[in-house]
Amino acid sequence: MSDAPKPPPKAPAPVAYKAPELRPETLPERAFVPELLRGLAVSTSHFLRNLLFSRDPSPDVLHRRGPNLVSTVQYPEEVAPYPPGYRGMHRLVPRPDGNPRCVACYMCATICPAQCIYIEAGEYPQDPIEKFPRRFEIDELRCIVCGLCVEACPKDAIRMDTGTHCKPTYDRPTIVYGIDRLLKGPAVSHRTDVWFKREGSDPPADGHGHPIPPLPGEGKS
């Protein structure tokens, strides 16, 4: 392999950043003490400004004003505003009658990488949507807020648009959110929803003697 022709010399690759050259130390710098005192002056100025002046309590740290330099956000008394792209915690979307749009199809539970969704399905006796979640629980401690459940949902029943986050708690069971805490926000309905396609919610007792419901587009004679 030593006979392999050497690659031609390359031009130095352009670099985006070049480290500044260090200038040689001056005598006072080598004497150390003046530099120590200058450092002390910096500490002292910060100390005095933060000790003597009030802190601007604005939660937006970058826009705090005044001589006080403290940038702490005193959570939970102060809450920093979320960036505009933040989606927040999920919610169960209600349908116009207040029940969840969810039909307990388990798609979210299937795709959830954290396996934090627990669903128990129930059956509506008289509703065109036969299936509903009797229990729909999300373990917010496990949830990684990845949003895959929103992508997987075929019914637009779970969304991440609340802009809030899960509140901390001292009690582990209370952080498993059920339908009562997840179901919130404005109701949503689509043209493809079943209750637009099918008028009555109760089917005939048997198929004989009853006319089959006409097509919505068909003329009713």
């Binding site: 036969e130 089917p203 005939p204």
Partner: peptide
């Protein structure tokens, strides 16, 4: 583009079987 034909969605035709036409 036409709407689908609607039939009986949930008919319990026996002790063990439910039919969705």
């Amino acid at each position: 583009a036409q709407a689908k034909l609607l039939r009986h969605k949930r008919k319990e035709i026996g002790p063990l079987v439910v039919l969705d036409q």
